[in-house]
């Protein structure tokens, strides 16, 4: 395949950055998108140019490290697929492909396509856990969990923390990420004691980080490589309002 890439290049956080065009010949349709970038980087190194920096690690769609907005869509055109699992056969020979970093005030660009997603960790840190010091756990079967709850909690817990929801949201909101965690923990009996503190604390962190507010456009769930459903946001709202206006948070 022949391709023309327009890639965002930015030396560091203070650089203004710009799109730079690259031509590639002879890309295998069986290559993944990131392998295609590997090929580009090998060419750049051979030509004594700086290779393109991009985040990636497991390359099997689970670590959440890869990002990239491809032709205006986070993780590219294929649904429920991370960039690392996207293959070049999904593109046309001769296609022009735009590659950009996640864009959000909370995710400043570090270099080229690499952004800082630490606000996602900050949200978890502010309450996205169940306090269970090692050694204190009761026998696992002492609290049965209804299968539907466990299954739904799992569905929400599948979130890989990649930040595509933020990248896709016209408001730059991380509500899907937040809703997924609040739902996953809030559905388990073990998550109940901290449920109301958790949601308030996590939302405060979300808002302080400079993410936008959710207006239910639904773009996040479509971009989400795990297809986390939008109703987790409703649950986030419900828990937050019950915790605050409902006075459940003591």
């Amino acid at each position: 395949m022949k391709l023309t890439l327009r890639i965002w290049r930015q030396t560091n956080a203070s650089d203004k950055g710009r799109m730079v065009e690259y031509k590639l010949d002879d890309i295998s349709p069986d290559a993944s998108f990131l392998e295609m970038l590997d090929v580009l980087n090998e060419q750049l190194i051979a030509a004594d140019e700086e290779p393109v920096a991009f985040d990636h690690d497991c390359r099997e769609g689970i670590c959440g490290m890869c990002s990239l907005v491809i032709n205006g869509t986070p993780h590219g055109p294929e649904r429920n697929t991370t960039t690392c699992q996207l293959h070049m056969r999904k593109f046309k020979d001769g296609e022009v492909i735009d590659v950009e970093p996640w864009r959000a005030r909370a995710f400043p660009v570090i270099k080229d396509l690499v952004v800082d997603r630490s606000p996602l960790d900050d949200m978890i840190q502010s309450g996205g856990y169940i306090s269970a010091p090692t050694g204190t756990a009761p026998e696992a079967h002492s609290v049965p969990v209804p299968k539907p709850d466990a299954d739904r909690a799992f569905e929400a817990a599948e979130c890989i923390g990649c930040g595509a929801c933020v990248a896709a949201c016209p408001n730059g909101s991380a509500a899907l990420f937040l809703g997924a965690k609040v739902t996953a923990l809030g559905l388990m009996p073990q998550g109940q004691p901290e449920r109301w503190d958790r949601v308030v604390s996590m939302l405060d962190t979300h808002d302080d980080a400079g993410f936008g507010g959710c207006t239910l456009t639904g773009e996040c769930t479509v971009a989400c490589p795990k297809g986390i459903p939008l109703d987790v946001i409703s649950r986030l709202n419900s828990d937050y309002l019950k915790a605050t206006a409902g006075g459940k948070k003591k």
């Binding site: 169940i130 050694g135 756990a137 026998e139 696992a140 079967h141 049965p144 466990a150 923990l185």
Partner: peptide, 21 residues
């Protein structure tokens, strides 16, 4: 003990209809 610990942390292990692991 590991299973007990992980369940206490809210890890959503697969469960049967009776609610047990």
């Amino acid at each position: 003990q590991i299973i007990d610990q992980c369940v206490a942390q809210g890890v959503p292990f697969a469960r049967e209809y009776g609610g047990l692991l």
